[in-house]
C-alpha cells in the first residue's frame, strides 16, 4: 500500500505524516507537490495540516484551486481514499469534496491542546479500526476549526452516518465545555456519503507514538491497511528504533 502526502506552499504537517507512515507504520509514502497535474500511482492521499497559501482569502480556499486538487477530486470521485487533516479538512470543504465550512473558532482563540473525541461511526475506511462510541484522544491546533453546515446539510450528515468524530469529555459526553471551537453539533470530523473522503480537525499524526501521550491517531492510518490495527499501550512500532 502506497500513500501520497500532498505538499502545498505553507503545509507544515506533511513531514509529520510522512514520518508516521514511513517510520512508524512502515508503509511506502511519497510527497506530492501541489503543482502536479496528475497523481502518481498511490492507494491513498493525505492532505496535511498547515497554513497553505498563508490562509489568505479563507483557509484552504487557494489550495483548493491548485492543480493537484483537480487530480485529487477526480480520484476521490472514483473512490480513492483521501484524508484531510486540519488545513487538509479546510481544503476538502473549499474544494467541495466535503460539505460545510470551517470558520474562526467561536472564542477567536487559537486552540492547541489534546481533546477527547467520540467515534460516532466505524463504518468508514479510516475509522474501521475503532469501536463505535469509543473515546479517543488526539491534539488539535487551529484557529479556524469551527465546523459549520446549514441545518439541511447537517441533517443529511446525521442520517447518512457521515459524522465520524465529535468533541466530547473524558466520559464520551457531548458537552458544550468539551467543544473547543464552537463546531455545530460538536463535529470534529466527517466523511462523504461514499465514505472514502474524510476530513477532521484533530491531528492523528501527532498521536501515533507513546512518547506523544496517545497512539489513537495511529489506528486511523492503520484502518486503511490490509491488516487490522494492533495497538497495545506501550508498544513500539516498526521504525521506532530509528530515533
Amino acid at each position: 500500500m502506497r500513500w501520497g502526502v500532498v505538499v502545498f506552499p505553507g503545509s507544515n504537517c506533511d513531514r509529520d505524516c510522512l514520518f508516521v507512515l514511513q517510520q512508524v507504520l512502515g508503509r511506502e509514502a511519497i510527497a506530492i507537490w501541489h503543482d502536479e497535474r496528475n497523481l502518481p500511482p498511490v492507494d491513498a492521499v493525505v492532505l496535511p495540516g498547515g497554513f497553505s497559501y498563508g490562509d489568505y482569502l479563507r483557509s484552504g480556499a487557494i489550495a483548493a484551486l491548485s492543480p493537484i486538487m483537480a487530480a485529487v477530486g477526480r480520484a476521490a470521485r472514483s473512490g480513492l481514499p483521501v484524508l484531510g487533516i486540519c488545513n487538509g479538512f479546510q481544503i476538502l470543504c473549499e474544494a467541495g469534496l466535503l460539505p460545510g465550512a470551517l470558520l474562526t473558532n467561536a472564542d477567536a482563540l487559537f486552540h492547541c491542546h489534546p481533546v477527547h473525541l467520540r467515534v460516532e461511526s466505524n463504518c468508514c475506511l479510516f475509522t474501521r479500526g475503532f469501536a463505535s462510541g469509543e473515546v479517543v484522544q488526539m491534539p488539535i491546533a487551529h484557529g479556524q476549526g469551527r465546523y459549520y453546515a446549514d441545518p439541511s446539510t447537517l441533517d443529511r450528515l446525521e442520517r447518512s452516518g457521515s459524522i465520524l468524530f465529535r468533541y466530547c469529555d473524558v466520559h464520551g459526553e457531548r458537552t458544550r465545555e468539551a467543544n473547543p471551537n464552537g463546531s455545530v453539533a460538536n463535529i470534529a470530523g466527517i466523511c462523504n456519503e461514499e465514505g472514502n473522503v474524510v476530513g477532521l480537525m484533530p491531528h492523528p499524526e501527532r498521536a501515533c507514538e507513546t512518547l506523544l501521550a496517545s497512539t489513537d491517531g495511529l489506528r486511523l492510518f492503520h484502518s486503511l491497511g490490509s491488516t487490522p490495527p494492533e495497538v497495545e499501550p506501550g508498544a513500539t512500532y516498526a521504525g521506532s528504533a530509528v530515533r
Binding site: L57, R58, A61, L65, C93, G100, A101, Y148, D150
Partner: peptide
C-alpha cells in the same frame, strides 16, 4: 465560486 464561500 472563489472570492466568497456561499456556505457561510
Amino acid at each position: 465560486d472563489f472570492l466568497a464561500n456561499p456556505v457561510v
